[in-house]
């Protein structure tokens, strides 16, 4: 059996959780077994995970969880259900619990996987390494295996019907980490989950010009991102900073405007499916990583692109 931990902060299933379920369902099929999703706390519409391929959906009642008690619960459920593979998402939560779950299950762990394992000779799963400059194939030989799936790595698929949610008797241990507050980012699409991302660099010259980028993002329905110096100078909030020291993202479309394409920036975005680069310098290194390039002054090109997008959508 494959067990998927479906993350649901504040009771809402995340898109990456649905992707993990689709991944788990396909893996279960390849291994000739079934897959179950596990949710913790009050989760809105947990049964809908059946649509994305879960044969069963389990819930552990209780709330206010830290990584220690989530991990304990996931590992206990995996043992109870005799799950050979546990799948979760490669998110802040995933990065806090994957090692714990693996340690409890004495399982080999591979994080940030981007494709289904190859089962022809054991269990071999691929993931990007060296900041996207290469892939590594990991062979897991332990009885239990714990994987975390990179966001946007596989497309969501409707594979079944909603199912009834069953509760599962796994105790939640008490939390030792206390949550004092969460400051929500105002509006917009959360960057790690976004399929379309518009990103700006120092070429914008200052925060007062950011409306040019925001208008394009709005026309596209895209999330916004930036290079590190832009966040360091406080032109944009830090959670928008992508690259080696910031977020690594994998959208379907990444539009880089006025960003030179330094290797540390590319580390966070070079797994994007399609990259568009807009830069006035034809020698900018980013063009080497791009699918489509526009050499021109962003202050002229971007408003034209925004208009073209609006025309296309209308």
């Amino acid at each position: 059996m494959i067990l998927i931990y479906a993350e649901s902060p504040e009771g809402q299933l995340k898109k990456v959780a649905l992707e993990a379920v689709t991944y788990g369902a396909k893996l279960a099929k390849a291994m000739g077994t079934t897959c179950a999703a596990l949710t913790i706390g009050n989760v809105n519409d947990a049964g809908s995970l059946g649509k994305y391929g879960a044969d069963k959906v389990y819930n552990i009642p209780g709330d206010s969880v830290d990584n220690q008690n989530i991990a304990r619960a996931v590992a206990d459920a995996a043992e109870k259900l005799d799950a050979e593979v546990v799948v979760m998402s490669f998110t802040t939560t995933g990065k806090s619990i994957q090692g714990r779950v693996a340690a409890r299950l004495k399982a080999g762990a591979v994080s940030g996987v981007s494709a289904l394992p190859d089962l022809t000779d054991g269990f071999v799963v691929r993931r990007p390494v060296f900041s996207g400059k290469a892939f590594a194939d990991y062979k897991i030989t332990s009885a239990h295996k714990v994987l975390s799936l990179m966001g946007n790595a596989i497309p969501l698929e409707v594979l079944g019907e909603p199912v009834a949610v069953e509760s599962i008797d796994v105790p939640l241990v008490s939390c030792k980490v206390r949550k004092l507050s969460v400051e929500k980012q105002a509006g917009g699409i959360p960057l790690p989950e976004a399929e379309l991302v518009v990103s700006g660099g120092r070429g914008f010259k200052g925060p007062e010009n950011w409306h040019i980028l925001l208008e394009l993002a709005e026309a596209l329905g895209a999330a916004t991102a930036c290079s590190r110096p832009v966040a360091d100078m406080d032109w944009r909030p830090h959670h928008e900073h992508v690259g080696q020291t910031g977020l690594a993202i994998r959208p379907n479309l990444y539009i880089a405007i006025g960003i030179s394409g330094a290797i540390q920036h590319l580390a966070g975005v070079n797994n994007s499916k399609t990259i568009v680069v807009i830069n006035k310098d034809p020698e900018a290194p980013f063009f080497k990583a791009a699918d489509y390039g526009v050499v021109g002054d962003l202050f002229e090109v971007v408003p034209k692109l925004t208009e073209a997008v609006k025309k296309f959508k209308a």
Partner: peptide
């Protein structure tokens, strides 16, 4: 930073 915000924790 967590997805979509900033979290303050104590331990």
């Amino acid at each position: 930073d967590i997805e979509g915000g900033v979290e303050v924790l104590s331990v």
